[in-house]
Amino acid sequence: MSIATATATTATTAATVGPSPAAATSKRTRAWLVLLLAGIFEVGYALAVGGSQGFTVLPWSIVAVVFFLLTLLALSISLRTIDVGIGYAVWAGIGAVGAALLGPVFFPETLTLGKAAWLALIIGGVVWLKLSDRPTAESTER
């Protein structure tokens, strides 16, 4: 990129900074995509931690550490825009449902109807809990 183009880009960016509704919408969309990504990373984290067998299997252990950092990073970025209670609920929900569904794909596990029902109650319970755990006015101040 030439210096002239770079300057022009900076000028455009500077012009769009401020209370533009379009920019706010795209920021929210991006935050939700990052949150979705954080949920997917969390599924990978759960599966890898399980596969690591107490961190004795090297490949799974490395994958677990990488996903651990990725999920924390993505979650913290998305929570700058998305409400903490809603963000945590979606993230935990994706992680737990994904781990339950994909566990049998990667490991010698089975997901019976009964097990799925109890898991749904647990996961539904924690998602509900996070949604009703509204932060107080004090804790939302930045």
């Binding site: 399980g50 737990a96 781990a99 339950a100 994909l102 566990g103 490991f107 997901l111 898991l119």
Partner: peptide
């Protein structure tokens, strides 16, 4: 199991 342990 991963799905069970992780959810709990």
């Amino acid at each position: 199991e991963v799905g069970v342990g992780y959810a709990i």
